[in-house]
Amino acid sequence: MKPHPRTGRIVRLSETARPRVHFHLDGSPCEALAGDTVLTAVLSSSHHLRQSEFGPEGRAGFCLMGACQDCWIWQADGGRLRACSTPVMEGMQLLTEAPAGWPS
């Protein structure tokens, strides 16, 4: 898998005057806006949320309404979040792959 391209897949079309929020994705510092979901925040600097457990492709969510569960993402402490319905918070540590030593 290539390292994260610098830009993600998300294009911000409006509502860009919100305060900034800082988080880490795979250890690298990233920026988002207050009110972003974790999905919006992560996909602003990446093209996927994690690797699929069942195929070669990455996963980036599908329904954005809590129905498909395609959007979960790892946290550094081993917890997982449903990215489409969790607001991003200052200081979040998010991972696109399972934390080291964690059975994925």
Partner: peptide
Amino acid sequence: IALKAQGVALGR
């Protein structure tokens, strides 16, 4: 939903 609730497009 991305557009309405977040003001974003999911691609270019």
